[in-house]
Write a protein that binds this DNA or RNA. Structure first.
Lengths: 212, 212
DNA sequence: TAGATTGTTAATCGATTAACAATC
DNA sequence: TAGATTGTTAATCGATTAACAATC
């Protein structure tokens, strides 16, 4: 569930899958891929793929398709993934670790420079190349790390709204909220809520529909 | 990014937040909540909340609002969250652990009865109340556990499509795919793709829009 | 050339929002 | 009663799909 009404959200959601497809094609030494093949692989309609790529500023060549290198470079620029963005992770639990250590973000310009925990046992531990910092030092460490994005993956014992208020005050540009707690910020901060239970609701509805 | 075009998806995504709000109200011993207050808290429009609740079959009382207990019971039934659904987790990494151990699903009828790992070190370990099973025994253990839903959170070393094919053949009803690998199933299996990079793309677009 | 593919304009479909009557 | 709220029908808005011309 996303917070603000950003136009073309479904398109933005599809673009990363086009990027991955192009990177696979690149590994296979293919120079061009057609929107049709992309659509076929991803289970989308060719028209939608062409519309999306056109939206991202990409031009194809009739009969040949889209140049793989242009898809890769173009989409990375369009998504701002060509520029590294410093991020901090708040919450050093399993989800925080998963985000920090998974390889899916290697192309996204997500540069996690700090991880904060609440649990006294965990503070000082190493996760990957980072040492878990004390969440109590968040305001102080913010100045040093100067993050652009904050990822909140704390458990329900901590108040996500309070954390968000502090982050907003310090000048964060975007907050990715993995808690089911509601976050609202008055200023100009982008907020994305990844609510697993919302996703699960959609899956349940789909199962129900398919099984009467 | 979701797989199939299920109507009313945005509504289904919002319903869990209404359920949580009602449960909070219930803890505060409130008997009724208005759609207006719900909308105000969640940053939605009152019309949308009323439409959503009506879609879920809930009836309010003019001037008073909606009965809290009816929201809770009604939404749980509507989402099929009143009935426990057996699920298996495939992938015993940090994300799998996070899903298994987080409390957000306590109301969702998600009953995780098995977790499978690939890493020889991890097989046999206890995570929460479950022992990590060998993914090589998936077909065999499926018969014993009889899961309804499978959550795939394996890393890129494993082929998610191959796992999905096996699960589909065994009769799984729904697959929740946390990998960025594309899964396609011919049969009548509901698939929900939780692709973090798709979410991140939307956040990046929102940040970009807000900052010129 | 013919066929495959892109690109664009128009039509359709679904979701949200507006307007307002009904009601406690 | 008056005011607040729900419920419903119509209008709007955005996203997807269709149709088809342009092109290599």
């Amino acid at each position: 569930m996303r917070e603000s009404k950003l136009e073309f959200t479904p398109t933005y959601e599809r673009l990363p899958s086009y990027l991955r497809f192009a990177e696979d094609a690149s590994l296979k030494k293919q120079d061009f891929v057609s929107g049709t093949s992309l659509a076929g692989f991803l289970g989308l309609s060719p028209i939608q793929v062409r519309k999306d790529l056109a939206f991202a500023g990409l031009k194809g060549i009739p009969k040949r398709g889209y140049k793989v290198s242009e898809i890769i470079d173009g989409l990375k620029i369009f998504l701002t993934w060509n520029k590294p963005k410093k991020a901090i992770l708040i919450g050093a639990g399993n989800l925080g670790k998963a985000v920090l250590l998974c390889n899916d973000f290697k192309d996204c310009g997500l540069d996690i420079v700090g991880i904060f925990g609440n649990d006294k046992d965990k503070i000082g531990d190493k996760i990957g190349r980072l040492e878990v910092l004390d969440i109590a030092d968040l305001a102080f460490e913010f100045e040093r790390l100067k993050p652009f994005i904050a990822i909140i993956s704390v458990d329900e014992k901590l108040d996500a709204q309070e954390l968000a208020n502090l982050l907003a005050e310090k000048g964060i540009k975007g907050i990715w909220n993995f808690t089911t707690q509601k976050i609202r910020i008055k200023g100009n901060v982008a907020i994305y809520n990844s609510d697993f239970t919302a996703d699960f609701a959609v899956l349940c509805a789909d199962i129900q529909r398919r099984n009467g």
